[in-house]
Design a protein around this nucleic acid. Structure first.
Length: 429
RNA sequence: GGGGAGAUACCCAAGUGGCCAACGGGGGCAGACUGUAAAUCUGUUGUCUCACGACUUCGUAGGUUCGAAUCCUGCUCUCCCCA
């Protein structure tokens, strides 16, 4: 019989515990338990906003328990009203099935499913047990146990009484609640975790378990992750930060974490790494002494990028960052063609015919017409006037003309608008 | 059903016949300073043009006028009050 660590205590020091049902800590100390978290397939990739819940499962497994990741193939069809001020549009079924498969594949990366270990993870999809469930059966077997009065008392529903809520979204908590009941019944899963906005949905589940099976089940929620400046975590200039490399390149992913504000770095380290407490606090203390060096951001960014994209991609992102943000102009010219392509993996690119360059092309044309890097010639000219455009990391004047002598490795040009926006031009023909 | 208010650029919001591509604020982008930070300061923020300037834009379709975001008419939508 394997032993377990005190998982609740672990969540406490990591700042991941918002609320838990009475008895949860004691239950988890009894031995390896099963706990699940649901992920609704609203897109074909998870994003960093989902990372908190992913890490919850990872920490859970680290503590010696059995994590269960649930893909919401069914709940995704209904739409969770929690935290939503208005009714959402339903995704069509094809998109949903596609998303579901993608999310499924992503979740697999983070947990250990090996049957060789004592507490392997499991991945389930609630579509499997809902697809053959008829409406009448559902309202007879499940709906009968919960009163509308109970359901209306939930914040997610109450907040929508003024503006309106469809019967579909109103029913959501019952659908999710039944998931919990199902996992309780089939897998003896007695813990559901989730963000603090999920509390209402989770307790509907524990209530169903009590009424339908006379059983006891538990709940743990995490606080809503916020940034020190009050803005929403997980967004950056370019929008959402996705886990899928096709949507957010590993380089940009790495940069997202690297750019974390000093005040947030400690929080991120505790939540998103598996570092033990002493190591974590030591790094935080070091960071506090000299925040300007951003040692903690670097460690955290490398750690999470490795976790999500693998060692190789992480190394490339670190190397690319080094080259792009160092003042060493020569480093760029010395890169081999392959290194150039690797470093600029994920940076937008365009191809330009060689004769256009050979003839000498005014910088404003190159930035707009020829490459589409900047949306209009006016925009390009403005950028030049601001002194924000660089060619091969050297500031370009307004009347700059680019020709073949500027090419890196005789084939490439590195354009830059500002400090962080790069564009790679490949000369062809 | 009756009465009233409104629709302006990414958002908020001024403008009520020519000086309006349209005040101001927010946001975005950039520059300086820095640590690829925060704060601050500065510039910029319809398209084309080196520029003079040209063109398109103030819910929508027409109309009046030398000239309209601004006046008139129809239409669409939003909000408020009364029944």
């Amino acid at each position: 019989m394997s032993t377990v660590r005190n998982h609740i205590e672990e969540l406490r020091w990591r700042g991941l515990l918002h609320d838990s049902m009475p008895g949860t800590e004691e239950y988890l100390l009894q031995g390896p338990a099963k706990g699940y978290i649901g992920f609704d397939p609203t897109a074909d990739s998870l994003h960093v906003g989902n990372m908190v819940q992913i890490m919850m499962l990872v920490h859970f497994q680290q503590s010696g328990h059995h994590p269960i990741a649930l893909v919401g193939g069914a709940t995704g069809m209904v739409g969770d009203p929690s935290g939503k001020s208005s009714e959402r549009n339903l995704l069509d079924e094809d998109a949903l099935r596609h998303n579901q498969a993608c999310v499924h594949a992503q979740l697999e990366r983070f947990l250990d499913f090996s049957p060789a270990i004592s507490n392997p993870a499991q991945l389930v999809n609630n579509y499997d047990w809902f697809k053959d469930m008829g409406f009448l059966r559902f309202i007879r077997e499940v709906g009968k146990h919960i009163t509308v009065n109970y359901m209306m008392a939930k914040d997610s529903v109450k907040n929508r009484m003024e503006t309106g809520i469809s019967f579909t979204e109103f029913s959501y908590q019952l659908v999710q609640g039944f998931d919990y009941f199902h996992l309780y019944k089939e897998l003896d899963c007695r813990l559901q975790m989730g963000g603090s906005d999920q509390w209402g949905n989770i307790t509907t589940g524990t209530e169903l378990i009590r009424r339908m099976a006379g059983g006891e089940a538990f709940a743990v929620t995490t606080p809503l992750l916020t940034k020190s400046d009050g803005s929403k975590f997980g967004k950056s200039e370019g929008g959402n930060i996705w886990l899928d490399a096709k949507r957010t390149s590993p380089y940009r992913f790495y940069q997202f974490w690297l750019n974390a504000a000093d005040a947030d770095a400690a929080k991120l380290a505790r939540i998103f790494t598996l570092w033990p407490q002493e190591q974590c606090e030591a790094l935080i203390a070091e960071h506090a002494k000299d925040p300007g060096r951003r040692t903690l951001q670097k460690e955290v960014a490398a750690y999470i990028t490795r976790l999500v994209h693998g060692e190789g991609e992480m190394q490339d992102a670190v190397r690319a960052s080094g080259i792009l943000f160092s003042n060493d102009v020569d480093g760029l010219a010395q890169l081999s063609e392959q290194q150039l392509l690797d470093v600029f993996e994920g940076v937008p690119k365009a191809e330009v015919p060689r004769d256009r360059i050979a003839a000498g092309i005014p910088i404003a044309d190159l930035l707009s017409d020829a490459t589409g890097f900047l949306p209009s010639k006016g925009e390009a000219r403005r950028a030049l006037k601001e002194g924000s455009v660089s060619v091969n990391r050297t500031k370009a004047a307004e009347d700059r003309v680019v020709n073949t002598a500027d090419l890196l490795r005789d084939r490439f040009l590195l354009l830059q608008r500002g400090k962080k926006s790069y564009f790679l031009v490949k000369v062809v023909g």
